[in-house]
Design a protein around this nucleic acid. Structure first.
Lengths: 140, 140
DNA sequence: AGATTTGTGGGGAAAAGTGGGGAAATTTGG
DNA sequence: CCAAATTTCCCCACTTTTCCCCACAAATCT
């Protein structure tokens, strides 16, 4: 389970550390993917494999499956940690998420997300407004 | 069950003791989370695990689930007690709750809350005014 | 009163965050 | 197809933060 929000600098080489907590829950490498919400999604390889399997099983229409496969797998990268616990962010993903010099690393239960700090703030504001009734109801 | 209100200093390293009562009801570590009401919520790990499990089961819409995961898990931290019964408060949570040099520790049934003293006073005033009918209705 | 628990403060070792060098690999251009 | 330029990957080094231990005074309990 991933939780917590951390802020890290990105060096000129495009490297970002992940929190030690998160590293220990992965086995040396992770899968990166363009997120739905202007962020970069990061999965441990085993979670990724499970998602990939479910994807194939869930979508029945061949055309839809081809397209979904293109989007999901076409935007995916494998990234492995260096000795300092950093991964390299592909330029394309970084641009998509508007991550330049600082990245917010968010543990979101089964996945990790990398955000531009400002965009994350906006997203959380919107989410809190829209979901406050769920949160209230849920009691957390 | 947590009850009572205690006031503790926060040292320069950002550490706060929890009352011995409360410590004994946890197993060495707790989960911290940004509360809805400008406070820090503290859960025993078993309570937290139960909440987290229910969360995933309850929300069906993918977007809503992503957002709720961000809010709930993204603001959560694990904190374990040192030999003196203190936990470290992450800077982000401390700022959110406006806790600087003193913290009010409130036992609130199944959870513990950490407050800025003044904010807690205001909250209690408002709560008593607004919720007096609730207290009358449900109160003992 | 004496012993134990509790609140508060710090010191020091270990870990984590940050930055860069240089060899290997890949890409680019002639 | 080869050489130059760029990128990637694997080290190393330094600074800051965190974590774990000890210390001591005040309060509490027996």
């Amino acid at each position: 389970m991933f939780y917590g929000t951390y802020t890290y600098k990105i060096d000129e080489k495009g490297r970002v550390p992940l929190p030690p907590n998160f590293r220990r829950q992965t086995k040396g490498s992770v899968m990166l993917k363009r997120g739905m919400d202007r962020c970069i999604e990061v999965y441990p390889t085993d979670v990724w494999d499970k998602l990939a399997g479910e994807l194939a099983a869930r979508v029945v229409s061949p055309l839809k499956r081809r397209r979904l496969n293109r989007i999901v797998f076409g935007s995916a990268f494998n990234a492995s940690f260096d000795k300092q616990g950093r991964i390299m962010l592909p330029a394309g993903l970084r641009e998509y998420a508007a991550i330049t010099d600082v990245a917010a690393v968010v543990g979101a239960n089964d996945r990790i997300e990398l955000w531009n700090e400002k965009l994350l703030e906006e997203e959380k504001t919107i989410a809190e407004q829209q979901e406050s009734q769920i949160i209230e109801e849920f009691g957390v």
